[in-house]
Design a protein around this nucleic acid. Structure first.
Lengths: 214, 214, 214, 214
DNA sequence: ATTTAAGCGAGACGGTACGTCACGTCTTGTC
DNA sequence: GACAAGACGTGACGTACCGTCTCGCTTAAAT
């Protein structure tokens, strides 16, 4: 950000351990106290680090927490290959729900989203660091389904916008439905519910392909 | 809540104006500053009321904001009758998105949901005050569609749980998808997107009915 | 103040019990909590009276407490006739010290004096209500001593100011020394100490009469 | 008090300027507003210091004001050598009265004494910080008078308690009389009054020496 | 081996908001 | 109209974190 990777820096280098300890402490504190009661003093104390060290690296709560949360989503999700689109969807839904049920993730994610509701820069950071990184799952799932012949291949130039639009819709529906079920309805995402959602999506998606121009 | 309706109350009664002014000021302040920067002192000042009056009636930020937000959802949503299930869904999605795009609603709703991520009592209050109140829209929509013959009537005792489960799934999908589109993806909920979602749901729902035991 | 004693007052007359209860409650509360922690709400509660009633009769803390304290000094002190000026002084000193050692008196008196340090009107009220009322003790003691022949009678016109000046000095010395001993030095006013003070005064007073023009 | 002088202290050291500024501001505010209207927020503002800094160093009003007042008495009083015991007493009385007439001293001293009326720990602090420090004036005055032959030297073991007892009596009488004259009687301590008091004391003191066992 | 520039812990600092408390005033309904 | 009850506006309280700022010490690269 402020220096090219090859820029030789003089003086004592920053401790990499500190970074890890701080991010871990942030996640732990966030899970326990929630965004509102999260204090940077507490994070510093948990990490065994001075507050100064913390402010030397992040500009404030937002930046720190987004980084801490992003790490959670870094490599957590992958698309299982279960033989059919419906099974794949059911599988990824269950994994996502499991992630959302861990207290650290649940608190952290909602906290940053809420904070982003009135902070455009933060919303952008979330999209880049967390959301966009997961969209490839949809793309991957569609390609597998097309290879299996479950859904038709892309037509090409004619309605070029429809494909990505469908991908985005699927993403919003899957992510939104799971989050809503877990966070708002407070009901479990079990195999049954995930199965129903998968059926809805597979059948509905076929309908979308049938309907022209959608 | 704290007194039977016939309980003779002595002393000066609480001002009803104050309640209204405080809730309105809370919504305004929340829209402008967001949850994190919302100060009860500011709310009091906007409402032309003393801080103590505010604390006399609500125990803290959470309680106040939930009450303020609940009022927003009180009578805002209704299901338009546009002639077909698909059109009805598209219509309600657009209305819901419009509501979510008003800054006060957007900030307020996400704030309380986030705070609820680690506060069971708050989550319960949200469900009672906001969520459950909207579920009737799904029930109403289903009944209309059944009357129109778009989807089959309930079978009765055999799979009695499938109907409500489908209703809940639909609710999570619609609400979740719209919220995710607006809050996370930061993309507009226009007629096109709403139409796609409606198609997905109508077709998918038919598939759910076809699939036995779902 | 606002009505002649014979003026027919309309409406419900003020309760005389309330007055007594309030003053007694004030003294009790003052003894327990001190001036700083004395709350009028507490006084009202102890007196079994509404705050309104209290404010209807006194303008504020100062007025109430001074009235409450004044009653303590109303008829508490008298000059014993023990046969000699020295014995009389010793006796009144012991009685005054006893009064000052009662917690209510001790707290109350110092509180109003301290408050008076920067409040001229209050200082005047104290002088009228408390101090001036006790000065007659000095005059009475002097007259007795003159009758006994222990000190010479007043000369008359020549040095007419010297007599009252001496009375005032004696008053300041006796009252001041006792208060200082009790409140500041925190040491007991016993017969020995009172005796020493009496000797000092009797002998010193004789010296004052001897010294011309004093 | 709380740390040995060689204790290595870590972290940023407390500002000595702040201490001085706070104590000075306290005295100024106290003189202007009196104890009752003295607000620590105002003190902090006058001192150009944050309220927290103030609370970091003193536990409350009492502690702060006693420290502030103690400094006033630190080196204010000394015994003039005017050639005779009577003149020395007259001199120190006038100086003490002058000190007491300064609004800051008058308010501050009475305030802490009043507060001490129901606070044993505070009374102890006052004695240590203010009163005991002035007693040496009495001892010094007595020694000078003994050197001049105005009063007889101490006898030694026989009545060893009488000497200190007389010193304490003199202290209570001088301090008490001046305070009472200024604070309660609200009359001036001029040369005439101080002279009378000095005569009373010198003559009375001789009487005390004459009376055996006193 | 020194130097040197930054990192680091500790904790004081100026702020802002908190939630509480008592003040003295006001509005009720009852006596 | 006095009274009990209690809500109200006001303003200080003492606390908790914020993000910044000294301190003196440590650490590793550059000399």
């Amino acid at each position: 950000m402020c220096s090219s990777p090859t820029a030789k820096r003089t003086g004592r280098p920053r401790s990499a351990d500190a970074d890890r300890a701080i991010l871990a402490a942030t996640r732990a504190a966030l899970a326990e106290q929630g965004w509102g009661r999260l204090t940077l003093g507490d994070v510093a104390a948990r990490a065994g680090v001075a507050k100064t060290t913390l402010y030397r690296r992040w500009a404030g709560k937002n930046e720190l927490v987004v980084d801490a949360v992003a790490a959670l989503f870094e490599e957590q999700l992958e698309l299982p290959d279960l033989g059919s689109l419906q099974a794949d969807i059911q599988g990824v839904v269950l994994r996502f729900a499991e992630l959302l049920n861990r207290p650290e993730t649940r608190t952290a994610l909602m906290a940053v989203i809420a904070e982003a509701a009135h902070d455009d820069a933060l919303r952008l950071r979330i999209r880049e660091a967390i959301v966009d990184r997961q969209k490839h799952l949809v793309v991957l799932g569609r390609k597998r389904a097309q290879q299996r012949g479950e859904i038709p291949p892309e037509d090409g130039a004619a309605d070029s916008a429809a494909g990505p639009a469908r991908d985005n819709l699927i993403f919003d529906v899957v992510a939104g439905a799971v989050v809503h079920r877990v966070m708002v309805s407070s009901e479990p995402v079990d195999e049954e519910w995930a199965g129903r959602l998968a059926v809805l999506l597979v059948v509905g998606l076929a309908g979308l392909h049938t309907a022209q121009d959608l």
